[in-house]
Amino acid sequence: MSFGDPNNPYGQQPQQPPQGQPGYGYPQQAPQGVPPQQGYGYPQQGAPQPGQPYGAYPQQQPGMMQANSGYINVPGLGTVQVASMGRRLGARALDGVVIGILYFIFSAIGVAGAMGAAESAEDCGSYMDPGYDACVNEASAGIIAIAFGSLLVFGLITLLYEWLMVAFVGATLGKMVLGVKVIKENTGQNPGLGGGFIRWIIPMVGAFVCIGQLLVYLSPFFDNSGKLQGWHDRAAGTLVIKK
């Protein structure tokens, strides 16, 4: 009676492991669709849910941060990088320079207008002349109107600069230079008129409360979600990303 290999002391053929299952001393192979680096036979993070085919791993949900990476998944844009506070504060400083230039221009216009009104007051003649008081009052009213008018126009232009550019472009000049953009967190699109206005008005309201405006601009430091959203970003539903 033959029991197989004569060199086998037990007289039996060596058993092969069942197909598809690893045996002792045999290299393990991952099933098709599982990345090799994940290994096989050990639980992996992001494992497929019940009912899903093996090897199908759920994708990151929109709005979720990738842990400690500074990246976030935004609908319509995919994975984007959150803008650093250095870039954001640098962009704010550049915008301050732009606004300062506008302020200088309109202040010069106001001063020139006020000087012209003052010269008109000198032309009123002597206080003994009939109509002198009316002439001086008219010149003084002109000086006040020019001063307030120039400030009003300056405020309107700064409003339109910050509001409309963020609303329709997603960036001011300073943000463009430093590669920063403001988007709607839930769509990835530009903030629009409503989002842009909310994002502008909150720091302006803070300006009337001591250092409130500065606190609003620094408030992203207080955000522990990793998105660096300031109070004005949360109210407007916006996110600042690196382009």
Rank of each mutant, 00 (worst) to 15 (best):
V205T: 09
Q52L: 04
Y103G: 12
I202C: 00
P35N: 05
Q37V: 00
Y161A: 10
A118M: 13
L178F: 15
I99P: 01
L94N: 07
A147H: 09
G131V: 10
T238C: 08
G125I: 12
Q19T: 11
L102F: 15
S69T: 15
I202W: 01
G110V: 10
F3K: 12
D133Y: 13
H232Q: 12
M204A: 12
P36V: 00
N73H: 12
A121P: 01
P31N: 05
Q29F: 08
Q229T: 02
P18E: 06
F104L: 15
Q59K: 13
P53T: 00
K227T: 09
P6H: 08
E138R: 13
P53G: 00
V166M: 13
A56S: 13
G46F: 09
P203C: 04
L215W: 09
G131M: 07
Y54D: 04
P191L: 04
V209C: 07
G174C: 07
A147F: 14
A91R: 03
P50S: 02
V205C: 05
G230N: 01
P75N: 04
R234E: 04
V153W: 03
Y161L: 10
P50W: 00
A30C: 13
G194W: 11
S150V: 09
I202L: 14
N8A: 13
N190E: 11
F221G: 01
Q37C: 02
Q15P: 06
Q60A: 14
D95M: 05
L164F: 14
G226Q: 05
R234M: 13
P27E: 03
P62E: 06
D123W: 05
L151Y: 11
A167T: 02
F148N: 09
I157V: 15
N190G: 08
Q59G: 14
F3M: 12
F106H: 03
F154G: 09
A47L: 01
D129P: 03
W163A: 05
G212P: 01
S107Q: 13
S84D: 06
D5Q: 07
C210K: 11
L156S: 14
G78P: 07
V34C: 00
